[in-house]
Design a protein around this nucleic acid. Structure first.
Lengths: 122, 122
DNA sequence: TTCGTATGACTACAAATGTAATCGAAAGCC
DNA sequence: GGCTTTCGATTACATTTGTAGTCATACGAA
C-alpha cells in the first residue's frame, strides 16, 4: 500500500475529500469545471485509486459510492515532506526563505506564520 | 521549454548544480553512493535532460561536459509553488501549520523562520 | 597501421500515467 | 418480456519514466 497517487488521481481525491461518499457520476460532475475529462476517464482514475487502496467502495444498489481511505492530512503531510526532503534537505526554513525571496508573502501570511510559531513555542 | 524534470533526472541535476561542468563519467561517479545506476542509465538521463533544455553540453575533445541551463533556484521555486498551489491553495502558512502539527520543527527551525520573517517586515 | 576502448547516440522494454472506447450485466421502462 | 440505459470492468493506446543494452566512431596505445 501507500502507492503513489498521480496528479490526475489527486484531482479526484480532492473531490472526495471535500464531499464524503459520492458515486462516479457525481464525481464527474464536480470535476467538470476544473477538468475536461470524459466520464470514462474519471472511472478509470477511480478504479486505479481503488486498486491502490486510496479509495474504498460501498455498493449502494447497483452503483458504487467511493470514499477516501487515505486521509487528506496524511497525504498532504507525505507530499510536503517529500518535497522538503528532496529540495531543502529536510528543513522547512529554507523553503520559507525561498518564498520570502520570491516576495510572495503578504503581511497577513507573515503574521499568520508568526502566530503559528508563537503557539509552538509554548 | 520548461519541460517537467522527473525524479531520476532531478538527482542528476543536483549533482550538476553542485559541481559545475562535469562529464558523464564523473557524474556517474558522484551518483554512485546515492543511486545504483549503470553508466548507461546516467547517460540516458543526461540525454533526456539535454533534450528538455535543462542541460547544455560543451564538447571538450571527444567527451561532453554538461552544465545546467536551469538555475536550481528557479527549479526549486517552481516545484515549491506547484506544491503549495496544489495542496495549500497557494498559501504558505498552511504548509507551515502542517509541519507544526507534525511536530517536525526544532526550536532552531522556529528561530530561523522567525528571523526570516523579521527581515521581511523591514 | 591496427586494435582495443571509451563515448555519445540509438534502441529496447516494462511500468506508470493520461485519456478514452467498448463490453457484459443489471435495472427500469412500456 | 424485450429494449434501452447505466454501471463497473475490461481493453486500448500513446507518452513518460526507469533502467539498461548495443552500435558506430573517434582516440590512443602498441
Amino acid at each position: 500500500m501507500a502507492e503513489r497517487i498521480s496528479d490526475a488521481e489527486h484531482a479526484v481525491m480532492e473531490v472526495l475529500w471535500d464531499h464524503a461518499p459520492l458515486d462516479a457520476q457525481s464525481i464527474y460532475d464536480r470535476l467538470a469545471d476544473s477538468q475536461s475529462w470524459t466520464l470514462a476517464t474519471v472511472k478509470t482514475l477511480l478504479s486505479r485509486l481503488v486498486a491502490k487502496d486510496a479509495l474504498a467502495t460501498e455498493a449502494q444498489g447497483r452503483k458504487f459510492f467511493y470514499r477516501p481511505v487515505i486521509e487528506r492530512t496524511a497525504y498532504v503531510a507525505g507530499e510536503s515532506r517529500r518535497l522538503v526532503d528532496r529540495l531543502f534537505g529536510g528543513r522547512l526554513s529554507p523553503l520559507v526563505a525561498q518564498f520570502a525571496d520570491a516576495e510572495t508573502l503578504s503581511p497577513e501570511d507573515i503574521a499568520e506564520i508568526e502566530a503559528l510559531l508563537q503557539e509552538l513555542k509554548k
